[in-house]
Simulated assay, not measured.
Amino acid sequence: MTRHRFSDAERAAVYRAIYERRDMRHFLPDPVDPEQLRRLLEAAHRAPSVGFMQPWRFIRITCADLRRRIHALVEKERRRTAKALGEREDEFMKLKVEGLSECAVVLVAALADGREKAVFGRRTLPEMDLASLACAIQNMWLAARAEGLGLGWVSLFDPEELKTLLAMPAGSHPAAILCLGHVARFYDRPMLEQERWAERKELDALLFENDWNTPCR
């Protein structure tokens, strides 16, 4: 046993947050305590980043009219996505895909401008800036679950339209709209699994050894 191991209770809490994290779409209107929100943002900011570039930026949306305009962008893309899904259009339109109108806090998670200056770890894999931002969002997601708050990641929007709406600089890139707030309950399983939109794959089907599609023994 490694001496750096957490206690049994601490390890159980970490794994509980991982297994009970959900992409939430149903929220209560109760406000989020400012100190609690600060802890979540600090958790995001502690994420790993390639070359320690820290590419994440978070824009908190507090203007009600701006929130409505963001919601309109999401709704427009929701309908476009439904059309693109063909035979699953009606099924998709029945899903609740965001909680922008109900959640207490709306954040836009974005990549900063000037990222091309970061070469360390990005020379052949420039997308590692987005991977770093995703780590920050996951940190916030797990911390929110530990705090008893729900968080939902909304990706149904045109990035250029949102970028213009938020007066973001050239070279920056909005990657996610995050809905955060109190919830009546957490879903027992991921909502899309509960709604039979998709099923979780078995780990062994995704785990290879030495080369592609060779199962681990």
Rank of each mutant, 00 (worst) to 15 (best):
L133S: 02
V106N: 03
L178M: 07
P34E: 12
E209M: 10
A17S: 12
G99W: 04
G171W: 03
R60A: 10
H71E: 13
R11C: 13
E161P: 00
L162G: 02
A110C: 14
Q54R: 15
L41I: 12
G114T: 05
D188V: 06
W197V: 03
E20L: 13
L133C: 08
S172L: 05
A110K: 06
P174V: 02
P174M: 03
V50S: 14
R115N: 12
I137H: 01
V106P: 02
F186C: 01
L111H: 00
D23A: 14
R189T: 05
E193K: 06
A9T: 14
E202V: 05
E193Q: 10
V183T: 02
R80I: 05
K83D: 15
R78F: 09
G51C: 06
M93W: 09
D23N: 15
L142T: 07
R38H: 14
D65G: 07
G150Q: 00
V97E: 03
R60T: 12
A44L: 01
L151Q: 02
G181R: 00
C135P: 03
N213T: 12
W212K: 08
C103G: 02
G121H: 04
I61C: 06
V105K: 01
F58L: 11
A184H: 06
M53C: 14
I59Q: 07
A198M: 09
V50A: 14
T124P: 00
Q194K: 12
Q54D: 12
M128E: 13
R145T: 07
R69I: 03
P126R: 04
A13D: 12
I59K: 08
F157V: 01
P126W: 02
L178A: 04
A175E: 09
H182C: 04
W153D: 00
M24Y: 02
M128G: 09
Q36A: 13
A170E: 13
D113E: 15
L206V: 03
T2S: 15
L151R: 01
R57A: 11
L178V: 06
A134Q: 07
G181H: 00
R122F: 07
W56Y: 10
P34V: 12
V154F: 01
F208K: 09
L40F: 04
K163W: 08
V14D: 06
Y15F: 15
D90Y: 11
E202F: 05
E199R: 15
D30S: 12
K83W: 13
P55C: 08
A112F: 04
M53G: 13
A64L: 13
H26W: 12
P29N: 08
A198Y: 11
A198W: 11
S172V: 02
E35V: 13
R217V: 11
P190I: 00
V119N: 14
L206W: 08
I70Q: 04
D129W: 01
E147H: 07
E147L: 05
Y187H: 15
R11V: 13
R78N: 15
D8K: 12
L142C: 07
W153S: 03
L149S: 01
H4I: 10
R185V: 10
P55W: 04
D113A: 15
L73S: 04
R21V: 01
P29F: 11
A184I: 06
I70S: 05
C63G: 09
F157C: 03
L37E: 08
F208R: 08
L37I: 10
R3E: 12
